[in-house]
């Protein structure tokens, strides 16, 4: 599989939020305004990219090499959790402003199922090399951010609309997400 196809597949056609339903908690929680959505998106791209690389290496060189592949869930979740802590510490050290902007979202990323999801997809895809895994991780993060930003714009507009009482809050949010997801179905033909 060529790298552009991996990118298009992870970012648009099989968008993690809109077609695989991964990472819905932050998608619904952090998409209320554009600025926080951007911060969350940046943090997710970074963590998904790095965790894809590390989990792929650990799987190839430790789990598969020593016939321990049955430990993959526990190994991956520990890697992701420690990576998030590490990223938090590094960002805190490097830039105070970046930390205050992203800090709140970092702990949330551990339980973002898109991060574990992309790590598991990478090892289940038999044709994948390390480069594929890295591209897949970053593209999946980019697709997540795209969906988050689009959705934040829609929600900012939605505040001013008259919505039937029963649909206010979560129901209309889900239906709006369904409509964007329908638009993303249109990308199906490009692969």
């Amino acid at each position: 599989m060529s790298l552009p196809i991996v990118f298009l597949s992870a970012a648009l056609v099989n968008n993690f939020v809109l077609s695989r339903f991964m990472g819905l908690c932050p998608f619904l929680g952090v998409s209320k305004n554009l600025k926080t959505a951007l911060g969350m998106g940046a943090a997710v791209i970074f963590v998904m990219g790095t965790s894809s690389i590390i989990t792929f290496i650990v799987n190839e060189h430790i789990l598969l090499a020593y016939n321990l592949e049955y430990l993959y869930i526990i190994a991956f979740i520990l890697i992701i959790a420690s990576l998030v802590q590490l990223v938090e510490a590094i960002i805190k050290r490097i830039s105070r402003t970046l930390y205050t902007a992203l800090g709140v979202y970092l702990p949330l990323i551990t339980t973002n199922c898109a991060v574990l999801g992309v790590a598991v997809i990478n090892i289940r895809e038999e044709e994948f090399s390390l480069l594929h895994a890295a591209v897949n991780g970053i593209s999946a993060g980019a697709g997540f951010t795209l969906a988050l930003l689009l959705f934040a714009c829609i929600r900012e507009e939605m505040v001013a609309n008259a919505i039937p009482k029963a649909f206010r809050g979560l129901p209309i949010t889900l239906i709006a997400a369904g409509l964007i997801s329908m638009a993303f179905l249109g990308f199906g033909g490009i692969l």
Partner: peptide, 19 residues
């Protein structure tokens, strides 16, 4: 049964419940 249907169905089920 396609992905958008998941969002739409849950949205409507929740709206019905709320109603």
């Amino acid at each position: 049964v396609l992905p958008p249907g998941g969002f739409l169905t849950l949205g409507f089920v929740m709206a019905i419940r709320k109603h």
